[in-house]
Simulated scan of single mutants.
Amino acid sequence: MKWSEICIHTTNEAVEPISNILHEIGASGVVIEDALDLLKEYDTTFGEIYELNPNDYPEEGVFVKAYLPVNSFLGETVEEIKQAISGLIKYDIDIGRNNVTISEVNEQEWATAWKKYYKPVKISKRVTIIPTWEEYEPVDSDEIILELDPGMAFGTGTHPTTILSLQALEQYINKEDIVLDVGSGSGVLSIAAALFGAKQIYAFDLDEIAVKSTTINAKLNKVEGKIIAKQNDLLKKVDVNADVIVSNILAEIIVRFTDEAFALLKEGGTFITSGIIQTKKEEVREKLKSSGFEIIETNQMEDWIAFVAKKPISN
Results as ranks from 00 to 15, higher is better:
1 M>Q: 03
3 W>L: 15
4 S>Y: 02
5 E>L: 04
8 I>C: 13
8 I>T: 12
10 T>W: 03
12 N>M: 05
14 A>D: 06
21 I>P: 13
23 H>L: 14
23 H>T: 12
23 H>N: 12
25 I>S: 11
29 G>I: 05
30 V>R: 04
38 L>A: 02
39 L>E: 14
40 K>Q: 13
40 K>R: 13
45 T>P: 00
46 F>K: 06
46 F>E: 14
47 G>K: 07
51 E>L: 07
56 D>T: 01
56 D>A: 09
60 E>H: 01
60 E>D: 13
61 G>E: 06
65 K>H: 07
73 F>V: 02
75 G>E: 15
77 T>Q: 13
83 Q>V: 14
84 A>G: 00
85 I>P: 04
92 D>L: 01
96 G>V: 04
97 R>I: 11
98 N>P: 01
98 N>W: 01
101 T>G: 01
105 V>L: 11
106 N>I: 09
111 A>Q: 12
115 K>G: 02
118 Y>N: 04
138 P>N: 06
139 V>N: 03
140 D>V: 00
143 E>S: 10
149 D>C: 03
151 G>N: 11
159 H>A: 11
166 L>G: 12
166 L>T: 10
175 K>E: 15
179 V>K: 10
180 L>M: 05
180 L>I: 14
187 G>A: 06
188 V>S: 04
191 I>T: 07
195 L>P: 02
197 G>P: 02
197 G>H: 10
199 K>Y: 08
200 Q>T: 08
205 D>A: 07
208 E>I: 13
211 V>P: 09
213 S>Q: 11
215 T>D: 14
216 I>F: 14
217 N>A: 07
217 N>G: 09
217 N>F: 08
221 N>E: 10
224 E>P: 07
224 E>M: 02
229 A>Y: 12
230 K>N: 12
230 K>V: 13
231 Q>T: 15
231 Q>N: 09
237 K>Y: 10
241 N>M: 10
245 I>D: 06
246 V>E: 04
246 V>W: 04
248 N>C: 01
251 A>M: 01
253 I>F: 00
255 V>R: 12
255 V>Y: 12
255 V>T: 15
256 R>F: 00
257 F>Q: 11
265 L>Y: 05
267 E>F: 11
269 G>W: 07
269 G>Q: 10
270 T>W: 00
277 I>R: 00
278 Q>H: 06
285 R>K: 15
296 I>H: 01
296 I>W: 00
299 N>W: 01
307 F>A: 04
312 P>F: 11
